[in-house]
Nucleic acid binder design. Structure first.
Lengths: 229, 229
DNA sequence: TGAAATCGGTTGTTTTTACAACGTAATTGA
DNA sequence: TCAATTACGTTGTAAAAACAACCGATTTCA
């Protein structure tokens, strides 16, 4: 396999990745070879995918974190999603071999990724490797789940005011954490970019919500007292 | 097959549906039987899926049109997507057998649909019907494309102002129509709900854009003079 | 045909946001 | 350790949106 990351390290990471669920570690080396997978490392701030690229490979985040972003013609920067270790990026575009993708993928930290040509997954190979069917089913499930999370995010974006957006987001985080107290994985600017609101407006709205006793927060730790939406 | 719609009518519709691409018409009767598919008819305004439902079946729109909608706790109604003949709905939730779905699906016109239990698609059946693999691949492609359209829609929602949202939307419609002139498939209220803006604000913004010579419109026919975004 | 409902534009008021600018605290890194 | 950078809250102002209310035109349908 191409890339500088040791094979057993890669296999270890992949064993916890939902794309490879149900595939034995012993099979993985052969599988990676058949898929023509390669590893690559990016520094914080580097682009893995640029708007306008043609994408054939999907990416698996082995370590670190990437953000799927979009900059529009009015100069706004927005964060569509974050992908942490075990997650996939660009898989929807790779599956349809999309030209001129509208999004970018940028490393939020130093990041190691595995890149796999999607055609190698969806087109069953001549050796009729046993894992193909499983990979396709896993990919199907991942795409379905991602559809769900895109809809969740839309639930925040469709809110009219900054207050509603941030409450919608915090409620969701609280729900996912199964706790009134939780960490948000963004700094203020990134949270604003994620919710498509102004940073200073976000800050002041958070201040108001605190004054009203609805939330408490310190840095990225939040406590939501309000009934969860 | 259960339902009151004649089989050959269903087969004719399905032959133009991307879920069944690559499947011969002669095979379809047997396939529908194996899948346990059933047809159903809804009147305008009827709900096909309600928020909170557990969904196992995906739907294929045979005739008519449905809207995927979401009503939030603040009383806002928003339209996530519209699905016309040949399109699928609820497939992402059905694939993951999701409980308590956050969305509703409502008939925008009188609508005939085909309902298929997703487990019958993804789990290859004992007869090892030849079409299963093809269905799964088609479904994969559809989910990937839908991911893309959700991202497109987010591109509109992430715009800050009503003006930017509507221009972003109209640019896209113009691009898709490959023409400066095009029809939008919404009335004003629905367009506002789709873009998550106030209807009267949308109306007055459209008026301003017309006064500035950027667009022309009559009812749902628009002409966009501005360079496409 | 006529009443009712829907649709779309307009206006005015109140609320909210975006934007820019500034200060302080925390973090980074040479 | 000190300087530079980044992060975060705050404030003021101008712009924009939300909301409600209204009106005329069109469509629906009994």
């Amino acid at each position: 396999m191409k890339g500088r990351i040791p094979l057993n390290t890669v296999v270890l990471r992949l064993s916890e990745c939902s794309l490879f669920a149900g595939i034995a570690r012993e099979e993985m080396a052969a599988m990676l070879d058949c898929l023509g997978a390669r590893t690559k490392t990016y520094e914080r701030g580097e682009y893995l995918v640029r708007p306008g690229d043609t994408v054939h490979e999907l990416g698996v985040v082995l370590t670190g974190e990437v953000q799927v972003v979009r900059d529009d013609c009015w100069g706004h920067h927005s964060i569509i999603a974050r992908v942490v270790a075990g997650g996939l990026f660009a898989e929807a575009f790779a599956c349809t071999a999309q030209h001129n993708v509208p999004i970018g993928v940028v490393a939020a930290t130093r990041t190691e990724v595995l890149l796999i040509d999607c055609r190698k997954i969806t087109v069953t190979c001549s050796q009729a490797c046993a894992f193909h069917a499983r990979l396709i089913q896993n990919l199907l499930r991942i795409l379905a789940l991602k559809n769900g999370s895109l809809m969740d995010k839309m639930g925040h974006l469709t809110q009219r005011s900054t207050r509603e957006k941030v409450l919608s987001y915090l409620s969701r985080q609280s729900f996912d954490a199964k706790s009134e107290q939780f960490e948000v994985p963004f700094n203020r600017q990134d949270l604003a970019d994620y919710l498509s609101v102004d940073r200073s407006a976000l800050s002041s709205e958070l201040g108001k919500l605190r004054d009203e006793g609805i939330i408490e927060f310190h840095k990225s730790t939040f406590i939501l007292h309000a009934p969860r939406v």
